[in-house]
Amino acid sequence: MLNVYGIKNCNTVKKALDWLNENQIAYTFHDYKKEPAQDSKLMEWQKLTSWENLVNKKGTTWKKLSAEQQAAVVDEKSAREVLLSNNSMIKRPVIELENDIILGFDEETYKQKLSNL
């Protein structure tokens, strides 16, 4: 069973969950609003993708940071710190696979990586 992390009312998360449901792929959803991301989880994800990929710089939460706060996000540690205090800034959804993660929603990527589950 997949673990899917995100925020229930996020449009991208909704698209991802709809796709998983339509393709009858079982998952457990972890809502950041109810279960905030933990440092250990972010460290796991940073082993599988770059910290730059985990930080959603297109969202309103990032844009609300001051220029100084944004400029301070320069490495894995500083990225984890800002993501822990602002879970809404984590690219979503995050779908955990055995030795990989998928960030966001891209139907072709989902077909390639999830259709055989």
Rank of each mutant, 00 (worst) to 15 (best):
K33A: 11
G104T: 05
T61I: 08
E76Q: 14
N56D: 12
E68F: 06
F105T: 00
T60L: 14
K91W: 07
V13H: 02
Y32W: 12
H30A: 02
N86E: 07
E68V: 09
K47P: 03
N11P: 06
N53T: 08
E52M: 04
P93I: 01
E22T: 10
E68K: 15
V74H: 02
K58D: 15
P36V: 10
R80Y: 06
A67G: 09
E98P: 02
N3V: 11
K14Q: 13
K33C: 05
L17R: 14
Q70Y: 01
E96Y: 06
S85E: 15
N87W: 01
G59S: 12
I95H: 04
D18T: 14
H30N: 13
K41M: 11
R92C: 04
A16M: 08
I25M: 10
T49P: 04
K33Q: 15
Q69T: 11
V55A: 01
D100C: 09
T12Y: 05
K91A: 13
Y32P: 00
L65G: 01
V13T: 10
K57P: 06
K8Q: 15
D75W: 09
W45I: 02
L17G: 03
L84A: 07
T28N: 13
L83G: 01
V73G: 00
R92G: 06
N87Y: 05
W51V: 02
K33D: 11
D106S: 10
A16K: 08
R92T: 01
E22W: 08
S78I: 06
A67N: 14
P36I: 04
D75N: 13
W45C: 01
C10R: 03
I25G: 00
I7Q: 06
S88N: 15
S66K: 03
P36L: 10
A79G: 07
A67V: 13
S78N: 08
